[in-house]
């Protein structure tokens, strides 16, 4: 990660609680490393994010998930790295799409009760960060810390 790099955090369905904590934590880590961070998510995920961080201390830029995909396909923007959050098949599918359309280095952040099974679905080039975490975010935080150094 170089200063000024553009990082995308791509959130999946917000039904698993650890995702929000991990996204905010990772955003802070990346900002401290000098990255410009954008968070993409569904309408519900972004509402949760904005209510969690109403004054934008941790999250500066957000974009609706499908708009983010459209902008990259249309070559209006791209990112240096992408942390794709996933705990289900649809999350893997979105991440595979991002891997195909973007030049970003991919990180697959995999959590939830079936984290290991979901990790096996990831067959595109990505560094996997896997933790069987649902309510307790610490196992996922520890895995993120290992990757972030």
């Amino acid at each position: 990660m170089k200063s000024g790099d553009r990082a995308l955090l791509m959130m999946g369905c917000p039904e698993v609680p650890v995702q929000m904590a991990a996204a905010i934590y990772l955003s802070l880590r990346l900002e401290k490393a000098g990255a410009d961070v954008t968070v993409a998510g569904t309408d519900a995920a972004l509402k949760l994010l904005k209510m969690t961080d109403p004054e934008g201390h941790y999250i500066k830029d957000t974009i609706e998930l499908d708009q983010c995909i459209a902008d990259i396909v249309e070559k209006k923007t791209d990112y240096n790295c992408c942390f794709a959050f996933m705990h289900n098949d649809a999350g893997v599918t979105y991440a595979a799409t991002m891997s195909a359309i973007s030049g970003a280095k991919m990180y697959a952040v995999i959590f939830g009760r079936n984290a290991e099974a979901v990790a096996e679905l990831v067959d595109f080039p990505a560094e996997k960060i896997v933790a069987k975490a649902v309510h307790n975010p610490i196992p996922l935080k520890n895995k993120i810390d290992r990757v972030m150094g």
């Binding site: 369905c13 917000p14 569904t42 519900a44 289900n88 098949d89 649809a90 599918t93 979105y94």
Partner: peptide, 8 residues
């Protein structure tokens, strides 16, 4: 048609 919370 894929939806993040509902699958494909």
């Amino acid at each position: 048609y894929v939806k993040p919370c509902h699958g494909t």
